[in-house]
Amino acid sequence: MSVIDLLIRSLPLLLQGALTTLWISLLGMALALVIGLLVAILALSGMRVLAWFAGVYVSFFRGTPLLVQLFIIYFGLANIIRFTPFQAIVIGLSLHFGAYIAESFRGAILSISEGQWEAARSLGLKPFHTFIYVILPQAWRRAIPSIWNSLIDVVKASSLASVVTVQELTNVADQISSASAVVLPILLEAAAIYWALTTLLDILQRYFERRYSYSDT
């Protein structure tokens, strides 16, 4: 079988793996965004215990390898709670990248001038409405570039799902390359699929940046 034939024949298998990668990534990204925002709020709450919790959380999940975290979640906790491989990788990705995104949100929220809070208050807005309608949209806009770094990383890091036996893109590529003894072309094919997925994210980033590109200074 020529290499070209193999690349064509392996495409459906790889795409099947890519579908799993896509699901893992979408769930991981969504949960990481939620966790990130909540942890940022805890960190800024001004309450010592909550801020301390947020600090420890960020420090641990940003400061240890995702691979190790996955082993802890999937194997280490197995006696207490048995996550399926899919659950383990989604939890791992959201906790890990939630820590990065928390820092992006925290920085962005802090960067919105206090004057905005005061102005909103003087207009009679309740704090909740101030946060939702005034602060968060501006902070979100400023956080987009750094948050998108993390989101793209989620897609790529989802390849670690293979160590917890999820049949995702990299895992499938490994199996095809060892069955066929053709390594680099198959990996390049898989890389092209990853690139396509992250390009979709790039497009989404540009859309968000356009949508929120009003002047706020």
């Binding site: 909540l38 709020i41 805890l42 800024l44 709450s45 001004g46 309450m47 909550l50 919790f53 206090e114 809070w117 005061e118 208050r121 704090p127 909740f128 101030t130 946060f131």
Partner: peptide, 19 residues
């Protein structure tokens, strides 16, 4: 002092709620 109160009042309540 005033500024801190404005921002953190919401964040504090929200964080408590989340926790």
């Amino acid at each position: 002092q005033v500024q801190k109160l404005t921002r953190s009042r919401f964040l504090r309540l929200f964080a408590l709620g989340c926790a």
